[in-house]
């Protein structure tokens, strides 16, 4: 069974898609099989890795779940596949999610979870790239998630965004949509420099948020540094790993960014192993009993 991670923060421009794509690349190039499920209407992660639109996107799959395998497309990254997003996805009404094409009733908040469960055995890691909003599909993404990854920069609004993640999850818990709060991991992105004083202050601030919101926050030790060349790489359809390796003189500054993402991915996967109980562990325990 794959671990499902929602890359989520309600604030926009906090590098959700960039983080999703780079964590997927870092993991895939180390042999981890990754699926990126794009529920963001902007489709940045999908378009980044697959420039041409496939005939079936997530918009069709939420209506007809049997299409899931046809909708998953191999990306440019070896070992990473993509469930392509759709601009029409936010227009999917709750009524559509409440019943399938045949009119059978279903839980509108568990549609994505059930979809991904069908292919979970074929991947090690499923990354859901969420949109910067509170929406039905984001709720689906959080219901499906074993773990929530919050990429953020150092803006004040981002800290408010981190607090909102816990609030949303607590609200979902109170409404019975999730049984337990998933662990929330924060990745500091776009750091201007590796200033230990700033980083220490941020850690203290996130710890205080964790205590105040009573939410299971963890801050990754590894951070990702800022390089302005990152702003122009989306349209190249390549990642910092690609461009650092063969992008030439222009993209030479992306080498440390690629290293940062790889280190952050390694730490995050270790954290996933430490914090979650693997489903197979439960299964073997039940079998032994």
């Amino acid at each position: 069974m794959a671990r499902t991670v929602s890359v989520y923060i309600e604030k926009g421009g906090s590098t959700k898609s960039t983080t999703t794509v780079h964590l997927a690349h870092a993991s895939a190039k180390n042999g981890v099989r990754v699926l990126i499920a794009d529920v963001d209407a902007q489709c940045h992660a999908s378009h980044w890795l697959i420039p041409s639109l496939p005939s079936i996107t997530i918009n069709e799959v939420v209506r007809r779940p049997e299409l899931i395998r046809q909708a998953i497309v191999p990306s440019r990254i070896v070992g990473a596949d993509v469930l392509y997003g759709s601009r029409k996805l936010p227009l999917v009404a709750e009524a559509v999610l409440k019943q399938d094409e045949d009119g059978n009733p279903r839980n509108p908040f568990e549609v994505l979870k059930r979809l991904l469960a069908d292919v979970a055995d074929e991947y090690d890691l499923i990354l859901i790239d969420c949109s910067p909003s509170v929406s039905l599909m984001n709720t689906n993404a959080l219901v499906a998630a074993d773990h929530v990854l919050v990429p953020t920069d150092l803006a004040d609004m981002s800290f408010a965004g981190i607090e909102d993640v816990a609030r949303t999850l607590v609200q979902m818990h109170n409404n019975g949509l999730i049984k337990t709060l998933p662990p929330i991991t924060v990745l500091l992105n776009s750091l201007e420099n590796d200033d230990s004083k700033t980083t220490r202050e941020i850690r203290e601030r996130i710890t205080s948020i964790a205590e105040r919101e009573r939410a299971p926050y963890t801050l990754l030790q590894h951070t990702v540094r800022y390089r302005k060349q990152m702003k122009g790489i989306y349209h190249t359809h390549q990642t910092a790993f690609d461009l650092a390796a063969d992008g030439g003189f222009r993209y030479r500054h992306l080498q440390p960014v690629a290293r940062d993402y790889e280190a952050a991915a390694a730490e995050f996967l270790s954290l996933l192993l430490r914090t979650d109980t693997h489903p197979s562990d439960d299964a073997s325990r039940i079998a032994q009993a």
Binding site: V34, A266, E267, L269, S270, L273, P279, A283
Partner: peptide, 21 residues
């Protein structure tokens, strides 16, 4: 960590290689 993650994830069931599944 990548190898450890892979190892644990694939312990339960044989996987179909990505892209061939």
């Amino acid at each position: 960590p990548f190898a450890e993650f892979q190892q644990l994830q694939r312990r339960s069931a044989p996987r179909i290689p990505s892209g061939q599944s």
